[in-house]
Every structure is written in structure tokens, then in C-alpha cells.
Nucleic acid binder design. Sequence first.
DNA 1: AACTTATAGTTAACATCGTTAACACTCGGG
DNA 2: CCCGAGTGTTAACGATGTTAACTATAAGTT
Lengths: 217, 217
Amino acid sequence: MNNKTAARKSLPGHSRPPIAGTTIHAIVEATRTLLATQGYEALSMREVAAGAGITPPAIYRHFPNKDALIDFVVNDTLREFELHLLRAIAPLPVGSYERLLALGSAYIRVATEHEAQFKILFTRIRNRPRKLADFPGQWGYQVLRQCVVEAIDAGILREMDPDLASFFFWSRVHGIVMLLLACDFSDTLPPEIGDLTAENLFAATRDFVVSGLKAGP
Amino acid sequence: MNNKTAARKSLPGHSRPPIAGTTIHAIVEATRTLLATQGYEALSMREVAAGAGITPPAIYRHFPNKDALIDFVVNDTLREFELHLLRAIAPLPVGSYERLLALGSAYIRVATEHEAQFKILFTRIRNRPRKLADFPGQWGYQVLRQCVVEAIDAGILREMDPDLASFFFWSRVHGIVMLLLACDFSDTLPPEIGDLTAENLFAATRDFVVSGLKAGP
DNA sequence: AACTTATAGTTAACATCGTTAACACTCGGG
DNA sequence: CCCGAGTGTTAACGATGTTAACTATAAGTT
């Protein structure tokens, strides 16, 4: 009857959890799950608490407020994101065009898998745009830039400013993902593209970027 | 003392307003203003009501709920948006490259001026992506497509599927705008670009799209 | 001109949300 | 053995979107 865990569930006022960091982990995990299943607008501290097996005010022992909790979760995903990018290019030859394609695909994959967290980056208005350097792992920018530099050096890409080119690549993939999150093109685009996934549209417009759009000479 | 407008402000239970549609207009205008000044997350029905000179429940005589009110305002902006596009290309020659550039600039201008409303299109999670046809004025798509077709016919752009090309143009501009809303590149991109506005970055990366990125033959 | 009714306001209240205050249990270290 | 830090609890506050119940006016009907 006086089972410890039962006491931990039912009595007011608890001890520290058996393993340090357990509760924080549960809170973060519950937040992640709720973001993925119900989205940002539906995320409430009470649901997070329920998911973590505690009461709402207990969250505030670990995070100063809701924003900080969400920031933590999103930053965590951004850190993983850089690892995804690195893993995507690892097996491919340095300086290759394939590396750039792989980065685009990895970006699309993570963005669509973590749609809610991805949207949060653009939703939070209170803070003017964050400096790129303030994003964990610089949001993968250095990985992209490195691949661009190597591709230019290898003669795969023409000579150009690597930062400007990196921005260009990034904004291109980003635009496809964001546009598809808002708008359904299924009755608009030609059926031979197949499913209108970001991945497919990235592939279908690839040659536009490689060869350019101006009419040939 | 028994002034009518004074009575209208102080007594419980009012008549219809002197001119039909006046209150709706006041509500919409208050919403628009608050969105622009304080953003989406800070928008409350009570503030809207105060801005419109009524009490909160009165809003519900004209809009079923907050979402519908915001939808109305955003859709209104989208309708104006198409007019902006048409006005931007009107003075330029049919089939010209300049028309495509003007569309990009107009998109950027409206998106940055109505940042909050623009974000809303991507934030509202509850509704899966809306069909393009459901956006007022198809979000300007037909205007863009028309210009793309004319540019292809004029031999300015190479032969390609006009819908795919339109999607490509759109996603490109859209990506620049959205990326800059989230991230500040000021310590990253080369200073010769000038202010890191979407407009400037659109211009700076223009040649990448026109001529392509592959190393020249 | 008087009565009726739809319209468009009001006040009061509800549930839910993020958050804080006050309190309580438990563990580790003096 | 106590005691303070850590971590949980319950109760409550103010703000939010929204509804219920009521009311005054304007327009339409007889």
C-alpha cells in the first residue's frame, strides 16, 4: 500500500525523481510529441504536464515559461538537424553535385517531419529575426557553405560568392517547403511530376537552376 | 444631453448603426491595424472590439469567431495583392523579362508590408494546405502564369512547362522572403550586397537563375 | 400611427490558458 | 539528527475566446 511510486503519484509534494534529468526529459518528450500530433497552437502547458506525468506548475521548476520550453525543444531539433545534414553528405564524394542535392533532400525531409517546429521558427513574432549565428549549428549553414565552396573548387559550380550562393540554395529549398505547407497545387501542376511533395518539386525544378532559364543561344 | 451618439456609446442595447456595414468595417480595420502593429499572437478580440468602439461580444454578430475574422482580413489582403501584381506589370511590355522581375518585387513588397498577415497563411495549422484555387485571386498565380507563358512565347525564357516554371519563380521569391523573416544574415553575407532586404537579395541572386549555376563550358 | 420583428448592441458569466503563491515531501550533507 | 535545497503539489489570479440573456433601435406591416 505504501508503495513509493504510488506515493509519488498521489501525494502532494514529491522528492526529486529517482534519476536526475528524468522529469526534464519527460517534459521535453511530451512537448515534442504534442507539437508533432496537434501542432503549435494547440499546445498547452497542462497537456504537456499530463504527458510528462506531473502537474502544470512543476514544469516551471525546469523552464521559466512556455516560450523557453518551446525554444529548448526547437533548438534541440536544430542541433539534430545539422547532424542529419552531415550524415546525408558523408558517403558522397567531396565537391560533388550530389552532395548539394543530398543537402536539399535532407532539409526537405527534416522540415516536413518536424513541420510544427519548423513553423515555429517563423511564427514567433516577438523576437525580430535571430542572427544566423544564434541558431544551434547555425541551422546547418556552415555545412552547406562548405559543400558549395568545394563544388566551386571542383569546377562543378561556376565561380561565385560562396555565401551568396549558399543563401540562394537555401532560400530555394526553403521556398518550396514553405509554399507547399500553405498551398495545395494538386489541380495546378502537371500530373507527370507525380506526388506533389517538396522532394519531387525540388527534383522537377532542378534543371532550371543548373542550366538557367534564359532561352538558349 | 440626450445626444444620439452619446446614447449610442453609453446605453446598453443599441440600434443598427447609422450606415449599414459601418461596424464591420471598423472591426476589420481595427483587426488590420492590430495585426500590423502587434502581430498575430498579440491580437485579442477585446482589443479589436475596443479599436472598433464596441464590446467584444458584438463582434460575434458579424463574424462567427476569431478565425473567421482573421480569414476575412487575410483574404481581403490577398484580393488587393492580385491588384498590386497587375498594377506592377501594366506599364511594362508584354512577354518581357522586366515583367517577371516586377512580379517578384511586388510580391516582396506586399509580403514585407503585411508581414503578420503573410505569416498567418503558414501558421494556421488546423486547416491542411488550402487548394490554390481557394485563395482569393488564386494568390496571384494566374497573373504570374500569364507572364511566364508570354515570356516563353517571346523567346525570353526557354521552352518549359509554364506551371512548373511559375511554381519555380514563386517558390524562389517566397523562399527569400520567408528565410529573411526568420533569420538575420547580416554577419554572413558579403557587405557589397547592401542592406539585406529581400529585394536586394532577389536582385543579387537573379543571374544565378537566368544563366544557371553549372560551370561554363 | 401603432404593433411587431429582425438587427445589433449590451452586461454577466464560463471554460481554458499561462503563470504565481503557498505549501509539502524527500533526499544529501553538516 | 536536522536542515536546506530540490521538486513536486493544490489553489488561485488575470487574460482570453466565446455564449447566454437581455435590450434598444430601425424598418416593415397593418
